[in-house]
């Protein structure tokens, strides 16, 4: 088991190197630091001194890969690649355009993101499983049919409409909750209720339908027939046997997204003004703050790989038949 984990962690290294290379190529080769400077400084006619100054301030004035002018031993380290890309491995993200430390910013913004994403995940899971069980219980009836139709209809609505509609109804029409904003501590609850509800609602379509398929697939297994043959009530079959076995694919599917919860939700956070990592990312994209985007790409891939590892481990925990070597 330990050997397996070590091997998986080692396997993650080439992937992170690959991610790093892709971002490096995208950010520094396809478009050179000169272009970045021109984009940031805005004006069409920027003097070359201004560009040089901008680059020097941010450390983009060094050569990309090999610095022939540097002293021995620093020929590879005094380069853009080393300072901007390799250092990400040490979680050294540098500073954003407004000179704030990115690592610090991430530590601060992580909590609002989690405060929104964790309830959405847990409540969403409960609602989706309940809805899917309901459809599975009434399978091949009109309730099931219209349930699926409702799922497909919910899936066909853009997430933007859920948010805009929810904000309009709950905040403008009924004045139940503030339209957007955030506060620390327990005051956060009144700002979070609406985004959580909307997040859950937006997920019912795809989640409910997917879990229904899982349940129905499980219900065509032999052990279900045996359970029915020995005279168990349909509800007992469903809740005690099918639900338990279907939890294996459901839980392992959830585990992969757990680390990514840290990244926050792009849309909800920016619509509801929650100062999390999702809105940080969107702001960075819109302000074209490449240092932040680069850091978020790196963190996102680390978390994704972590999620994959956790998924494999969770298989062994929930399903004793699986052994990892």
């Amino acid at each position: 088991m330990l050997a397996y984990i070590v091997r998986r962690v080692l396997y993650a290294i080439p992937i992170l190197v690959g991610v790093n290379l892709i971002t490096f190529v995208l950010f520094f080769v396809v478009n050179t630091p000169d272009d970045m400077a021109r984009m940031q400084l805005g004006a069409k006619r920027v003097t070359s001194e201004a560009i040089e100054k901008w680059k020097a301030e941010r450390g983009y004035d060094k050569p990309l890969l090999f610095n022939a002018a540097a002293p021995r031993g620093a020929k590879l380290t005094q380069t853009v690649f080393y300072e901007k890309s390799v250092r990400l491995f040490a979680f050294d993200f540098g500073a954003a355009e407004d000179n704030r430390d990115i690592a610090n910013e991430i530590r601060m913004r992580m909590w609002p993101s989690l405060a929104l994403a964790v309830p959405v995940l847990i409540v969403g899971l409960a609602v989706n499983i309940t809805f899917a069980l309901f459809m599975a219980f009434f399978r091949a009836t009109y309730l099931d049919f219209w349930g699926v139709v409702l799922c497909v209809a919910l899936m066909s609505i853009s997430a933007l409409f859920y948010i805009i509609g929810g904000q309009y109804v709950a905040s403008k029409l009924w004045h139940l909750v503030p339209i957007s904003g955030y506060a620390g501590g327990f005051d956060a609850a009144k700002f979070l209720v609406l985004p959580v509800l909307i997040g859950v609602l937006a997920g019912i379509g795809s989640g409910g339908r997917w879990y229904r398929t899982l349940f129905l697939e499980e219900m065509s297994r032999d052990y279900v027939r045996t359970a029915r043959a020995k005279g168990l009530a349909e509800s007992v079959v469903l809740f005690r046997h099918v639900l338990k076995n279907a939890m294996i694919p459901i839980l392992t599917g959830v585990v992969v997204v757990i680390p990514l919860l840290f990244m926050g939700s792009l849309l909800s956070e920016s619509f509801f003004g929650i100062p999390g990592l999702g809105s940080y990312t969107i702001d960075a994209i819109q302000a074209q703050d490449f240092a932040v985007v680069r850091s978020m790409v790196f963190i996102g891939s680390v978390l994704y790989i972590l999620g994959l590892l956790l998924t494999d481990l969770s298989y062994t925990l929930v399903d004793p038949r699986i052994r990892l070597q």
Binding site: I15, G18, V19, I22, T23, L260, M263, L266, T281, I285, V293, M296, V297, G300, S301, Y304, I305, L308
Partner: peptide
């Protein structure tokens, strides 16, 4: 494809 997948889609 693992590498490409691991980069958050919107960011890429």
């Amino acid at each position: 494809y693992t590498t490409l997948n691991s980069i958050p889609g919107v960011l890429l």
